[in-house]
Design a protein around this nucleic acid. Sequence first.
DNA 1: GTGAAAGCGCTAACAA
DNA 2: TTGTTAGCGCTTTCAC
Lengths: 322, 322
Amino acid sequence: MTVSRAFRQDTSVGKKTRDKILRIAENLGYVFDSTASNLRSQRTGFVAVTIPSLNNANFADTVRGLNETLLEYGLQILLGYTNYKVENEEHLIEQLLRRRPEAIVVTGGRHTRRARRLLENAGIPVVETWDIPQDPIGHIVGFSNADAMSQMVEHLHDVGARRPTFIGGDDNGDTRGADRRQGFVAAAQALGLDYHLLSLGAPPVSMREGARAMGEILDAQDGTDAVVCVSDLAAFGALSECQRRGVKVPEDMLIAGFGAFDISDISTPAISTIDAHAYEIGATSGALLAGLLRGDPPIPNTPTITRLSPALKVARSTSAKM
Amino acid sequence: MTVSRAFRQDTSVGKKTRDKILRIAENLGYVFDSTASNLRSQRTGFVAVTIPSLNNANFADTVRGLNETLLEYGLQILLGYTNYKVENEEHLIEQLLRRRPEAIVVTGGRHTRRARRLLENAGIPVVETWDIPQDPIGHIVGFSNADAMSQMVEHLHDVGARRPTFIGGDDNGDTRGADRRQGFVAAAQALGLDYHLLSLGAPPVSMREGARAMGEILDAQDGTDAVVCVSDLAAFGALSECQRRGVKVPEDMLIAGFGAFDISDISTPAISTIDAHAYEIGATSGALLAGLLRGDPPIPNTPTITRLSPALKVARSTSAKM
DNA sequence: GTGAAAGCGCTAACAA
DNA sequence: TTGTTAGCGCTTTCAC
């Protein structure tokens, strides 16, 4: 009936009729039932999103960026998190696809075989973020974690580091962390540095783990003069441990992080980091999808690659030794 | 047909038949369409959740607690954030209710009149969290922000504070912040302390704002000997500013936060805080809803009040002056 | 600008 | 254990 039209924007209904309908509906306490609408129109207005963790300001920023862009197009995020486990991701993707999202945004480029197949066969736009996968499923909005980390190692070399240690988590499930470690190793080797690697168990590697790692390093007295952390949270933990023990940063130890978390520029000293532009990853993905799903004329669905350039942010924690 | 039954847990289908159906479905790339199921069965499996901000470890923990409990009951969270604005909340609630969630969990007890009406008329269980509203809509899982803060002020008084300053944001939209301020004032007055209030604009009040506030306090030289912050993030910012200026904590300045964020016990010195049990708020709400929605026998839907007791965590940042 | 008929893909209820 | 019928509340299509 006309009521249906009145509840939509574009359709042709007499202004008076519409106002009357909406007023009566409000009084009746009627709430539009989108489940029926979704079924009939075959559009849910959902964009499914998977992130490793809710409790991470970087991914939260990406979701914010996505949400703010999608909101204008009447698209709503259906969010799930994987706890950095690809098996969880598979199950999550399966559940999300049942809800018939119009697109899906996943974090990272590594998936179980079945998850991959589900994504490929879903018949909706797929965006992989925070990474540049070798073998992309659909669109990409990401950056090279390895290159970004290499850049940091080069910077550390420039300011006098000769024996850097990398602090990160296990590789399982956290490809971004693994890529960062790999970038660290590649650069350290290229520069002929005597480097170390310290692994701290399953991600997320947080403040406490960073502190613990720094404790181990200082106990070992292995000559480490710089510490490169998989994230700013670990870096802050490491910094904190140094301060607890009276080790001066940057004089006696250089510390670098990743992610440009708030803590990196409020801590004393501020921590050098890589700004991966988390918000932009979301905003860019959102704009891409909005164009694909709501665009007039519809943009052809050929996979795009948006390669963002992380920014090296140098701060006091890696100031030149002299 | 039998296929429908095969995709559910409980129903009676021959084991062989079910396996065969599921196998064939997998090969065909069939994905169950829950939009149709939702419409017909009038159950979506959604629980709508609104939080002020994604970018806050406290609310993220609450959502985790909710999710982990609800997951077992086949319920999925439909998450939205309000940016601490009740007008946004109203719009968000309206959008979420269109999706026909089976329950809704909101943060706080203050809502626009229309949002209230929407919640009351939704015909589903409503849970208000992180607060003990005067005039509850449905269930409550929360605590008194004011009492918790009063407890902190009493502790500060015990360790020698005589002129505490409260650092928080504007009251608009952030009732929890406002309640904490009120608890601060109440306790300070009861103890006869000479207190100050510093307001920093719209929430969220984060690290940077905390640092700025501490800067103002130190510049003013108003005799402030203790700073009580609306959250640990602000408290850490304040601590950081002290360190930058060579003001010793706790010797020259006591600092207290709220929320038991990671930073509070990794910073040097560790920051005294209130653990509001964010995760438990979510887990408790989830268990309550699971019981209501999936419980056998169904629990009568009389509003419950679960009052949690925040824990005062004393750390070095408020150690006795002597 | 408005109405009538058909149907989206499931599941409830009943029958076999 | 399996099949049949009807219908969830919208939107699409077409007629007026």
